[in-house]
Design a protein around this nucleic acid. Structure first.
Length: 422
DNA sequence: TCTGGGGTCCTAGGACCC
DNA sequence: TCTGGGGTCCTAGGACCC
């Protein structure tokens, strides 16, 4: 039986989130910046039309921004995460067959919903989300995920579709595919589109009709699967239970360059604290810890970057233990006399609780540590992040990232809830 | 002054084993 | 001059995603 996938994708998600509680931004150009207010990472349609590119450095476009009165925001992940959850919750009312693919998009399997009109049903989903959350979405319906992505792309671009394209019942499918440039196909990135164009394969229709063995030979099996999916053959089924993460990374650029070891230590141990929390959240234990730091690659100052890999004697997700090894690693790679820009930690070789191996001479009381971490997590969940922190993290945080244009946390902070004056 | 952060999967090649 | 063959596991790096 043929499958029916729908891809629901929020339009310009971060920019739209900023609009939800600030309706006077409707119709105006809006951009959202990356951490540290570094790059432009989300743009409303109006901002796109002004030529602002994804990932462009913010400081290079000050003039355009001022001239066109573009509204600028720092990333407010608390707000975006909360709105995302609300959207996903609504989607789960429409079908239990739901795969949350990223913060702003989800695949739905509508195969087992006989009798529905796919277009009408999608319009209903779209309308409900808009009405209940204020978030505009586009929906593409197709027999494979790759085609659903394409249908979604077309629905977004062409106003005639009013945000929904049912590719399954589309009369002229090939004509639609012909309009999709090869670089806009899900899974075809910069390198591969360059290669395809060089070989005179410029759009989705041409790629669909390319010999898939040839594609496999020159571009690998991932690209071969894309060709098959374009022909309607499912290679990527719906994934209802995404697996635990195999690797967890926390790293950030500092608000300004750091030279002092103590400050770098404070920042990096704060990162590993976050990492340990993420580990405990998915009930994993790390066997390997990697700590890295680097100078600013864009600056003319002397450059230095290094990392240290530590095999942990006993798999752990205990913050105190991970801080201990992070400091050890950091001390071994820190060199005086450089202006550091960024550091981070990665934990990998993650295993679940029941696969842990213990050592005879282990001095740590692991039961006690587990209870301690549980308690700290509970308190911080209730009272706010780092309410209970570790002395080594420091309190002044001179390395903290810049977020000069942060919007209020409308939905998650009592002080930030809107007041309506009647 | 100012250039993000966090992931996955695949592949080729080396190490090692019998 | 000759110097096996087949297999697995691991790792680094590439490509891609949002």
């Amino acid at each position: 039986m043929n499958k029916i996938f729908a891809l629901v994708d929020c339009n310009n998600f971060f920019a739209s989130c900023e609009r939800v509680f600030n309706p006077k931004l409707e119709g105006k150009p809006v951009i959202v910046l990356s951490n540290n207010d570094g790059c432009i990472i989300a743009r409303s349609n109006e901002a796109k039309a002004l030529g602002l590119k994804m990932g462009a450095p913010y400081f290079e476009h000050q003039e355009t921004i001022k001239k066109n009165n573009i509204h600028v925001f720092s990333t407010n992940f608390t707000l975006y995460g909360d709105i995302s959850q609300r959207v996903m919750m609504i989607l789960s009312n429409f079908t239990p067959e739901l795969e949350i693919y990223s913060i702003d998009e989800a695949f739905l399997d509508l195969t087992e919903m006989p009798g529905i009109n796919l277009s009408d049903y999608s319009q209903k989903i779209k309308k409900t989300i808009r009405q209940w959350t204020g978030m505009p979405v586009s929906i593409g319906v197709a027999p494979t995920k790759t085609l659903a992505k394409i249908a979604n792309h077309l629905a977004k671009k062409n106003p005639d579709y009013s945000g929904v394209l049912d590719f399954i019942n589309l009369p002229e499918k090939d004509k639609a595919l012909e309009k999709v440039k090869v670089e806009n196909i899900w899974g075809i990135g910069r390198k591969h589109s360059k290669f395809l164009i060089k070989n005179n394969i410029n759009n989705a229709l041409q790629l669909k009709n390319t010999d898939d063995q040839w594609v496999k030979k020159h571009m690998g099996v991932v690209s071969q699967r894309i060709v098959l999916e374009l022909r309607g053959e499912v290679c990527y089924p719906l994934d209802l239970n995404p697996a635990d993460k195999k690797e967890i990374c926390t790293s950030r650029s500092y608000g300004h360059p750091l030279e002092n070891y103590e400050e770098i230590e404070q920042a990096t141990t704060t990162y590993v604290t976050r990492t340990a929390e993420k580990l405990r959240k998915q009930h994993s234990f790390a066997q390997t810890l990697i700590v890295f730091l680097m100078t600013n690659r864009f600056s003319k100052d002397p450059q230095y970057a290094n990392y240290k890999i530590i095999q942990l004697p006993v798999a752990t997700n205990d913050t105190i233990e991970l801080i201990h090894y992070t400091v050890k690693a950091l001390k071994s790679i820190f060199r005086k006399g450089y202006k550091y820009k960024k550091s981070g930690v990665i934990v990998t070789n993650l295993i679940p609780d029941n696969q842990r191996q213990f050592v005879l001479w282990d001095e740590k009381d692991r039961e006690k540590s587990k209870e301690l971490m549980n308690t700290i997590d509970k308190i911080n969940k209730k009272l706010g992040r780092d309410k209970i922190g570790y002395a080594i993290q420091g309190t002044l945080r001179p390395w903290k990232m810049r977020q000069e244009k942060l919007s209020p946390c409308y939905t998650t902070k009592w002080e930030d809830i809107l007041t309506i004056n009647l």
